[in-house]
Design a protein around this nucleic acid. Structure first.
Lengths: 239, 239
DNA sequence: CGTAGCATTGATTCTCTTCAAGAGGTGTGG
DNA sequence: CCACACCTCTTGAAGAGAATCAATGCTACG
């Protein structure tokens, strides 16, 4: 048997409400649990899947943090997202035979593996699961549109602030301190993701700190004036 | 032909191969057809759905062209995509009760309406339909990641050239002339979508024309040297 | 034929990138 | 435990590229 049998049961998992909507009943959760293998552990820099790998599963983040990226022919990397506990990675590979992206752990991370074959089969039987999958995929699409807008229109400051506030909101969903963030990724990764040079990211953070809106100590970030930050994002739109 | 009743049967539709993968058999197509209402017609500037509307359907483009956009609180618009015949709009609203985006016709356009309730129900019964939906959603995700990379890293020229080549490829899929494009959208829309000022779009097009790579006459665009264009996109990566 | 909207072109300004140097932190080996 | 090297982050100065402002040209449509 497994080492921590209870931990693999979604019913007992603290992240249940994040992975699945509240509408899921006990029997649905039980059936999903049966698909989930023992959570697997990854260390910093480990890849969960890589560009070109056969697409076998979705993964729900149980602890830690990851980045997903597209590696281009030229060797350039585009970081497409950072993922926290309760979030699902691999959606961009759904329906494909092979992975088009790469997922890399940013720190010690554990993941619940959801085999696609099982998920597809089960979502034939559970309309609410199918609906949920559609929903998280469309949510991902909408989030990307927001980011596209950010990249298209927003200044460096607005991009960074939006990212910080977004991260804060996601932490809050996890019932974690909304004002104490840990930037698991490097400045370079952050810059890549936001379409900025890493120096620019650093400068913006320093400026925000100088203005007394945040405190930064390496990867640790404290939000001092969330409203003032939000105001700066709005400000760029009002003109 | 397109107004003939029989045209609502996917089996008889010339775009069948674009809307659905070849694996769909006759009975599957027939059942999908039964969901599709008579194609509805839209004029330039008509909206198919708007931000906040109840989410009732996906739409397959039958003829014409549309743009989809997110309207932000500030009144700003972010154009998230342009859609051609055989493509499906509304995926970003899947699983949501209300639309988070707006779809606007760029010219005379006809659409096949696919009610979500029917689509959801039918995809419970047809695994290949469910798989296809997952696939087009994930394809949309991957396309957005490409665009994100474009916005994050690429120069104005590369953005415009990538867009042109992408459009050309999509035309080719439709068995249309790959080198004769009609830019149904305005320069402003194009600039918005690519994260550039409309003047910059215009300048880049003029420059490409001056270099003898394309010909531009208003909305009409002819590609003279596809390879040279592709080379310019690559060039920015090799460094 | 004239007007309105869209597109092009030019000049200037500004933001971000790039290049460069130095500081802070971390991990390893002596 | 300290010293050194390595890596990441910060900060500064210069330059490039696109945005903005502004004027003119083109096209379509009543």
């Amino acid at each position: 048997m497994s080492l921590h049998p209870a931990a693999t049961r979604c019913l007992d998992c603290g992240l249940q409400k994040l992975c699945f909507p509240p509408s899921f009943d006990e029997s649905a959760l039980t059936r999903i649990s049966q698909l989930v293998a023992q959570p697997s552990a990854f260390s910093k820099h480990d890849t969960v899947y890589r560009l070109g790998d056969p697409m076998t599963a979705l993964y729900a983040v149980r602890s830690g943090a990851l980045k997903t990226s597209m590696l281009l022919a030229s060797g350039e990397e585009q970081i497409t997202g950072f993922y926290l506990p309760g979030e699902v990675i691999g959606l961009d590979n759904m329906g494909q035979s092979h992975c088009a992206s790469t997922a890399t752990a940013l720190e010690k991370t554990t993941l619940c593996e959801l085999p696609v074959s099982g998920i597809s089969r089960l979502s034939q039987q559970l309309p609410e699961l199918q609906g949920h999958l559609f929903q998280i995929m469309s949510t991902e699409l909408r989030a990307d549109y927001q980011r596209l807008h950010l990249m298209a229109q927003a200044s460096a400051e607005v991009r960074v602030v939006s990212f910080i506030l977004g991260l804060s909101a996601r932490q809050q969903q996890r019932h974690l301190a909304a004002h104490e963030l840990r930037l698991a990724m490097s400045r370079a990764d952050l810059g890549n993701h936001l379409g900025l040079a890493l120096e620019t990211v650093s400068r913006v953070l320093s400026q925000l700190a100088a203005d007394g809106l945040i405190e930064v100590h390496g990867k640790q970030l404290r939000i001092l004036h969330a409203e003032a930050l939000a105001a700066r994002v709005q400000a760029s739109c009002h003109e």
